[in-house]
């Protein structure tokens, strides 16, 4: 059994409540820790998060419009395509905190996808992080299950040399 605190289990989901009746709880309970400093939520935090635009611009950027309303953002991922965007759209859509999400590739020649997330109250960035975390947990489970299935097949399969049907 996994503990609810383990990565991959979002706070909202581990309490076992249903998707449709969710209240929106701020993930950090009013105080957010950014780079080791506790700052009160609200304006301060917004200012710090807007700084994110700058240090993330190398590979990753949050588009405009996200600075005033943190619950809806568009994330621009460089060097990604349908492979990640479609999978993460699936895990996002399965999250009850997400009101809307979708992705687009603005131009086929650019290696870039835009992921739009609108939440029911949580920070879009946190929700995206959780969705990616969930996707990772799913992948890990797929990998262990696959390895087990291959090992099972190999033990149950009589090797060719032991085939008693061939004379």
């Amino acid at each position: 059994m996994r503990e609810p605190d383990e990565p991959g289990f979002t706070k909202n989901r581990s309490d076992g409540r249903m998707g449709s009746v969710h209240g929106t709880v701020h993930a950090a309970g009013g105080v957010d820790i950014v780079e080791g400093v506790a700052v009160p939520c609200g304006w301060e935090q917004r200012r710090l998060l807007s700084g994110f635009l700058l240090f993330g611009k190398r590979e990753f950027a949050m588009e405009h419009g996200s600075l005033t309303d943190l619950t809806s953002s568009t994330f621009s991922l460089m060097d990604e395509d349908h492979t990640l965007a479609n999978s993460v759209r699936f895990t996002l859509n399965q999250d009850p905190r997400v009101a809307f999400c979708g992705y687009s590739i603005p131009h086929p020649s650019d290696n870039k996808v835009n992921i739009r997330i609108q939440t029911t109250g949580d920070t879009a960035k946190d929700v995206l992080k959780d969705a990616l975390q969930n996707l990772m947990v799913m992948c890990q489970h797929v990998r262990t299950t696959f390895d087990k299935a291959v090992a099972d097949y190999e033990t149950n399969q009589p090797s060719e040399h032991m085939n008693i049907d061939t004379p």
Partner: peptide, 17 residues
């Protein structure tokens, strides 16, 4: 292949934080 998808997620998570 599955590991590569995990790495992609990991990369974006670390870019986000």
């Amino acid at each position: 292949a599955v590991k590569i998808l995990e790495d992609k997620c990991d990369r974006v998570i670390s870019d986000l934080s």
